[in-house]
Design a protein around this nucleic acid. Structure first.
Length: 486
RNA sequence: GUCCCCAUCGUCUAGCCUGGCCUAGGACACCGCCCUUUCACGGCGGCGACAGGGGUUCAAAUCCCCUUGGGGACGCCA
């Protein structure tokens, strides 16, 4: 029984795409669940498109999500590890060339001397190289005669049928006639993706290839190459793609295609993992949607993967993010919020850890995203300079507004302690005395203290704001109300 | 255009493989009501789908075929 080995093989020519994240996660979960190894391999054979800064960004993406690899290249600040290296395809060029040369020697591939214009002409006429080419069956003498002319190596696609036994898609049969003889070695001697993938998957003993179904038609080529090279084929599992909210393949330029966009927008990595897992997978346990990475490790199976593509839904993501935020330990939430508050330029130097923890506590269940903390708590860090327009009409512009405010003011002053329960008791007592409902005192006061009609619980925020600030803001609001009446 | 894949509420999906338990279940969103110091949360309820057409069968969301619709692949990119 061979061991399970999976891999993710991104091309470091961009950031970590949401689709790549999904593929990586499925491979990672499958390996973990089955006690196997998860390999990271960088597909950087196209030197022109590879950029070291993307290598860094991609590593940051994986680390943010919490997806770690057992084997892989030096990546970001991670050291290289694993016994099947190197794990950068560009460093495996000779292994790929060797395989190509072997196919050439065995007559399973051939040198093709067509110039670009000639190929364009063929395509124009809808002709294929395998039928039109004089090079497919050229004699040794004819090849010899070309001397030093540039050429590519093409794989001689065999007759017959290629069958893919896919763990998700089932049996997929394709007639090899659908495939033209494809290039496996470029004119500059570099391998083409198809060859590199097959050689590396074989040499790295990859047992399961889990990837997006945009690769399904490529897989037939890969199976042909595995067969030609005499390597056993891995098991395949092609999962459906993640579509954007319009139902199209996620464009690389679109906001959100980069997994780190979501971090910047205030989403938790836990949320992204959970949400992506839901895009095409369901738990055996019915009606369950909330999962942590650890739980997914336990529950994930390829059998529960769907065959149809799923659309990204921001609203559900927001809901899920709120759920995950509520599950965070207060200190943890506080630390994540502090970063955002500071980034926004708020001065936290005068605030104690206890105070900040308390802030996290009163905001926790109101945050759909971490970034919402700014809207929810800005009044703690800056003066209230304007009042919500609708709030003014409802709370400040009424004939009783002054009475409400003065009653609340009195309650604050007479409160036995500057603490939420005492404040609430004082408000209730004053309200009863003047025959006013609690809301009549709280709502205008909230507007005075925060400038808004929505926010954390009133007595909690008042406690955190401090007596002095509260009374100042109440007085200022009363002035504002008096001006309104003029 | 050719080939491949897919098809249940607006969205994500359960059910489909092993037809009857489905007057099709859940979640997000939306709409009511309740809770309530605002907003959320939570609770209760509502709206809402088997793409269409043929078969097979006593019986089809479930099996088969066609149509339509969506997605993907057709590079000296990966």
């Amino acid at each position: 029984m061979s061991t399970i080995r999976t891999r993710v093989a991104p091309s470091p020519s961009g950031f970590l795409h949401i689709g790549t994240a999904k593929t990586a996660m499925y491979n990672w979960l499958f390996a973990r669940k089955n006690g196997g190894a998860f390999v990271l391999r960088l597909e950087d054979t196209d030197a022109e498109r590879t950029d070291e800064q993307f290598v860094q960004a991609m590593c940051a993406g994986f680390k943010w999500l919490g997806i770690s690899w057992d084997e892989g290249p030096e990546f970001g600040d991670e050291a290289a590890r694993g016994e099947y290296g190197p794990y950068r395809q560009s460093q495996r060029r000779e292994l790929h060339r060797e395989a190509a040369l072997r196919l050439l020697k065995e007559g399973k591939a051939y040198k093709c001397f067509y110039a670009k214009e000639e190929l364009d002409a063929l395509r124009e006429k809808n002709q294929r190289v395998r039928e039109a080419s004089i090079w497919r069956n050229a004699s040794a003498a004819e090849v010899e005669a070309m001397g030093d002319a540039p050429y590519v190596v093409r794989f001689k696609v065999p007759d017959g049928e290629t069958v893919i036994e896919d763990l998700i898609q089932g049996t997929v049969r394709v007639n090899n006639k659908e495939y033209d003889d494809f290039v496996i070695l470029k004119a500059n001697g570099d391998p083409i993706f198809h060859l590199a993938v097959v050689v590396d998957d074989a040499l790295m003993k990859i047992s399961h290839v889990i990837r997006g179904d945009d690769h399904l038609t490529n897989t037939a080529r890969h199976v042909m190459l595995f067969n030609a090279l005499g390597y056993p084929t891995p098991q395949y599992a092609h999962h459906p793609l993640v579509l954007d909210e319009q139902g199209k393949k996620y464009s690389k330029r679109m906001h959100g295609a980069n997994i780190l966009d979501w971090r910047d927008d205030g989403y938790l990595p836990e949320t992204m993992i959970n949400y992506i897992s839901l895009l095409g997978w369901t738990s055996e346990e019915e009606n369950r949607e909330f999962f942590t990475l650890d739980e997914l490790q336990e529950l994930f199976t390829l059998e529960r993967l769907s065959k149809s593509p799923a659309r990204f839904d921001r609203k559900k993501l927001d809901w899920l993010n709120g759920q995950h935020i509520r599950r965070l330990a207060l200190e943890d939430l506080r630390d994540r919020l502090v970063v955002i508050l500071e980034k926004n330029g708020f001065d936290l130097s005068g605030k104690s850890q206890e105070w900040l923890t308390e802030l996290a506590a009163i905001c926790q269940e109101k945050l759909p995203t971490l970034n919402q903390i700014i809207m929810l708590s800005d009044f703690f860090f800056q003066e209230v300079t304007e009042y919500d327009e609708k709030g003014v009409r409802k709370q400040f512009a009424k004939s009783d507004s002054v009475l409400w405010m003065e009653t609340a003011q009195a309650a604050m002053e007479e409160s036995t302690a500057w603490e939420r329960d005492a404040l609430k008791a004082a408000f209730q007592a004053k309200g009863e005395e003047k025959e006013l409902k609690l809301g009549k005192l709280v709502n205008p006061s909230r507007l005075a203290l925060t400038g808004k009609s929505v926010g954390p619980g009133f007595f909690e925020l008042a406690e955190l704001l401090g007596k002095e600030t509260c009374l100042q803001r109440m007085a200022k609001a009363l002035e504002f109300i008096n001006q309104l009446e003029d």
